[in-house]
Design a protein around this nucleic acid. Structure first.
Length: 494
RNA sequence: GGCCGGGUAGCAAAGUGGUAAUGCAGGGGACUGCAAAUCCCCUAUACGGCGGUUCGAUUCCGCCCCCGGCCUCCA
């Protein structure tokens, strides 16, 4: 059996993954702050850790994967004020969009999705413990974590205390004992959301939520804590400080995994720079699986340049994969297909080996293309139907590990993109993404069938000019025809 | 300044102590009424630079250069 190895940010090297309890693996990933639609950079960790969760489930009998939703935050309060609605409206809308977007990318829901607003008691309990143990103090309605009380502070991100102070670029609140101290609890004005506490009515700071929720749903020590690279400091550093100080120094997470950034034209894609694409916009330009494949084609720790050309290629790759399944399916009768489903092939060893090597999805995808898809087409050419069918099965199970090839081939080729016509609030116009616009003409299937029949008649009459005219007309409307031995089939090609 | 990641053909992206997959793009062919899809063949003197270790380095070590990131809004 292949042993899983993962890169641990804490040690900065690849380590063998040895769960605390092989009978129950626990993973926590930082989820979104729900004030705005998810952009593709937010989607990367979701897809990456979705693959990791699938892999862990394949390797261990029980896996609990928790991903939180931060639904109380100043950005949300600001957004609600801007829109003139209640904060709950902002969070409910955003969460609904988030779930729809992530589902479109083929990400399975996490086992648990704790929300801050429902975890306040846990946070207050942890804050109280920290105060009692001398790791936190109250000042002017705030409760702050005393960084000086934790000797290992800075270990995850590899920075010393001096450096932090030298690098501090924000004004230090006067009530802080130490410039590096961070807020656990802060006071709310009457018009701001708040909860009663022994330090007055207020709301949690940014970092305490994850510490408290991880403990609530997974326990004191977890196996893997994941998130984007930019969370390493200060967010995860602070989580470690809070959790380990509250729990008498007991380790918070055994492994820390961070995904790299998406870049656009060489620059980090981020909300603060404004150079981002929402998942919702991209869904109108490419199928969710194509977006997912593009995200997985680059190793998760490497920077990923997200481009139109990349999206186009990912779509082409999937077309080729689905085509093989379609060919295989067409050669089998329904009873055989049913038998396949009853006896799914296990994940090909090469694929498993690649994923076990610190989630090397790039290599897994390369091997799928090279050794499975190519092989399948070779068997097709040579007329080896049994081998073709085996290759198709292999492809299905390999792709399933990556969350790909999850629809049937017919549906894939005939799908219509998610053209809601509603641009996201922050869509970014002047970019390399977006050259492929959704088609304005949408043809219903019966219209297509009618056109195909007309073309067939023209072909029979050797009126090829008319036949080609019909084909060109369909092409202009995004319908591509393919003449095969069993007649003409079509696909949408947005 | 400190710390971190990356630099492989036109583009994308694996990998390796013995001179390097694959995809897209490009060229030719089979098939087709023509296409599409599929198949076959071909193409590129691609491992940022300089040293070191070695019989031999793109792969290990050192230094340097370039790009990007973090240093309390950020996935």
């Amino acid at each position: 059996m292949t042993a899983l190895h993962v890169h641990n940010t804490m040690t900065r090297r690849k380590e063998k993954f040895e769960p605390l309890d092989p009978a129950h693996v626990k993973m926590y990933v930082c989820g979104p702050t729900v004030y705005d639609d998810a952009h593709i950079g937010n989607a990367r960790p979701v897809v990456v850790f979705d693959v990791l969760a699938r892999l862990l489930r394949r390797l261990y009998p029980k896996v609990t994967y928790a991903r939180n939703i931060t639904d109380i935050d100043d950005k949300i309060i600001v957004r609600a004020a801007e829109r003139g609605v209640h904060i709950d409206t902002v969070t409910a809308d955003t969460i609904a969009n988030y779930h729809a977007d992530m589902a479109a990318l083929g990400a399975l829901p996490p086992d648990m999705e704790p929300r801050c607003t429902r975890s306040i008691p846990g946070m207050l309990a942890m804050i109280e413990t920290l105060v009692d143990k001398g790791h936190a103090y109250a000042a002017e309605g705030h409760v702050l974590f005393a960084v000086a009380s934790y000797a290992d502070y800075g270990k995850l991100s590899g920075r010393s205390r001096d450096e932090q102070i030298a690098g501090a670029r924000v004004e230090v609140a006067p009530f802080k004992r130490d410039p590096a101290d961070f807020v656990l609890w802060k006071p709310s004005t009457p018009d701001q959301p708040g909860w009663d506490s022994k330090w007055g009515r207020g709301r949690p700071g940014w970092h305490i939520e994850c510490s408290a929720m991880a403990k609530d749903v997974l326990g004191i020590t977890i196996d893997i804590h994941g998130g984007g690279l930019d969370l390493t400091f200060p967010h995860h550093e602070n989580e470690i400080a809070q959790s380990q100080c509250a729990h008498g120094g007991v380790q918070f997470s055994k492994y820390w995994m961070h995904n790299g950034f998406l870049v656009v034209n060489g620059e980090k894609m981020s909300k603060s720079l404004g150079n981002f694409f929402t998942v919702r916009d991209l869904r109108a330009r490419a199928p969710g699986e194509a977006i997912r494949l593009l995200l997985l084609k680059t190793h998760y720790r490497a920077p990923l340049d997200f481009t139109d050309e990349g999206l186009r290629q990912a779509k082409l790759n999937l077309d080729r994969w689905y085509r093989l399944l379609q060919i295989s399916d067409a050669l089998l009768d329904s009873s055989q297909k049913e038998a396949d489903r009853l006896n799914p092939m296990d994940v090909p060893p090469d694929i498993l080996r690649a994923l076990c090597d610190d989630l090397n999805t790039s290599e897994a995808i390369a091997r799928i293309g090279e050794f499975i898809v190519d092989k399948g087409y070779r068997h097709h050419r040579d007329g080896n139907l049994t081998e073709l069918r085996m290759a198709a099965d292999e492809l299905r199970s390999a792709a399933a590990m990556l969350g790909l090839l999850q629809v049937n081939p017919e549906a894939w080729f005939k799908q219509t993109l998610n053209a809601t016509g509603i641009p996201s609030r922050n869509s970014f116009g002047s970019s390399t993404i977006g050259n492929t616009k959704p088609l304005e003409v949408h043809m219903e299937e019966y219209e297509i069938d009618t056109a195909i029949a007309a073309r067939l008649a023209a072909r029979k009459a050797k009126n090829f000019a008319e036949a080609d005219r019909i084909r060109d007309d369909l092409k202009a409307k995004g319908i591509v025809l393919e003449d095969g031995p069993k007649g003409t089939s079509w696909k949408r090609d947005g």
